[in-house]
Design a protein around this nucleic acid. Structure first.
Lengths: 252, 252
DNA sequence: CCATCTTTGTGCACGCGTTCACAAAGACAT
DNA sequence: ATGTCTTTGTGAACGCGTGCACAAAGATGG
């Protein structure tokens, strides 16, 4: 997962497990697709396949929301879309500010997935005076001086940080002081926030590093398999030590 | 966590738990910062604080790598940087292709965190002929016709998909057929891949939805707390049903 | 109205991950 | 050399998440 939770001591919110909450958007997306194709009902098996999860897990997840299915038939697509949307809080409008309009900030501003789910970009904010006034995704970028005012006037409770890492904590502090209680952090920094503020982190470089780890492991296993009889001489050179090295073999 | 794992049946790779692997990049970043400040050693307590985790967890994580610490002193920063880098496979060069050079693809191409960790952008690929030849982050965009050739010639094993969701699966199939075995997917789609291929998913919209859930819960709790004596009349209107509704109170 | 068939909802067991708490290990001073 | 003090490394307990497997529930047909 390209995600990392921060500072949430396993608080079961209203009885719904964190792991289930994280999957609800997945189900919602699959259900929305079905809804657009006017499919009336769907079985747990079908929906699970569409969402890429196990059907037992899906049924258990839904059981936390209530008994919305009909045995022998399945789930009513429209009804389920509504229930999940309501549970996730997507039936209301969430104004969001994006701070730091570099490449990534601009990409997010243009990202269609936000607007379609009740998220509204209330403001784009950047510290560079050169950026102020420029249009990005049809919205004028505002200077960070007015950050507090913008948040207050728009009733913003969710902030997205796409600044360089060096200023992320300062920006975070200002957001929190101004009343933001949920932060999505794209800067590669550990943010410290007071209790009651949620931080979720998306770290592009971490994801790649995890992939690299598994990639290396695959290459290593492959090498071990190939090293059946041929390069056994290397094995004799086997000095014991803390590093359980695998022979340095490039993947391709 | 803005991340989701896909299709990895809890395979303990070389004895290192998945959860630990996901934290190693975090430690590495904190250690690199210490290294730049020429700090020679660090205790598990200090490093844990810098990485935003529990010190016991950190020590257990490191114990999977081996005994690299000195009791009474702490860990040697440089040595640990090397060991973690090696474990993650960052001591070798990983050529990466990015497919889909829209806003997000361009943002990733410009992202500094890649190059600094052994990841090299081998090619930027887009299906739009208009894009071909344009320079993004100092690299010429190439048309997707040559995808297989590019992957083969550069020995690419990691692919990043930043295309629209509609074409993500096709792109994925072509990547896999050409020899890519690790995929970082930014498109909001469930990708199906053969065994042996790792997919990690980063879904921006899902992260926001999870934040919205918690935000809604906070607002609900606040409302419940405020509803001490004032609006008890509403409680009398309490019809029982499958929906355990909370009073509809807007956060701000 | 009864039988059969499909699909949900869930009790249960298992394994992974986290955390506590402490013994072992080494540094350092005397 | 001995004792004290710091910090690691880990055994053990606990809790969460997952998946199996089945009973309950409803639809459907005769």
């Amino acid at each position: 997962m390209a995600t990392g939770r921060t500072h949430r001591p396993a608080t079961r919110s209203r009885g719904i497990p964190e792991a289930t909450v994280a999957r609800l958007p997945l189900y919602l997306r699959a259900l929305t697709a079905l809804s657009e194709r006017s499919v009336p009902t769907v079985s747990s098996e079908e929906l699970a396949a569409a969402a890429g999860v196990n059907s037992a897990k899906l049924r258990k997840d839904f059981s936390y929301l209530g008994s919305y299915g009909t045995r022998g038939v399945g789930y009513d697509v429209e009804y389920l879309v509504y229930q999940i949307s309501r549970e996730l809080g997507l039936t209301q409008d969430w104004p969001v500010v994006i701070v730091g309009i570099g490449n990534l900030g601009a990409a997010l501003a243009n990202y269609g997935g936000f607007a379609s789910r009740g998220f509204r970009v209330a403001a784009l904010i950047d510290a560079d005076p050169e950026m102020a006034g420029k249009q990005v995704a049809g919205i004028a970028v505002q200077h960070s001086d007015g950050l507090e005012k913008i948040i207050d006037e728009n009733g913003v409770s969710i902030g997205v940080i796409t600044t360089p890492p060096g200023v992320a904590q300062q920006v975070c502090d200002r957001l929190v002081a101004a009343g933001v209680t949920s932060i999505l952090n794209f800067a590669p920094t550990v943010l410290s926030v007071p209790d009651g503020v949620d931080v979720r982190k998306v770290d592009l470089s971490i994801e790649l590093q995890i992939l690299a780890f598994h990639e290396q492991r695959k290459a290593g296993e492959e090498a071990e398999a190939q090293a059946g009889a041929a390069v056994q001489a290397a094995q004799e050179n086997n000095r014991k030590g803390p590093d359980g090295d695998v022979p340095a073999v490039m993947p391709a």
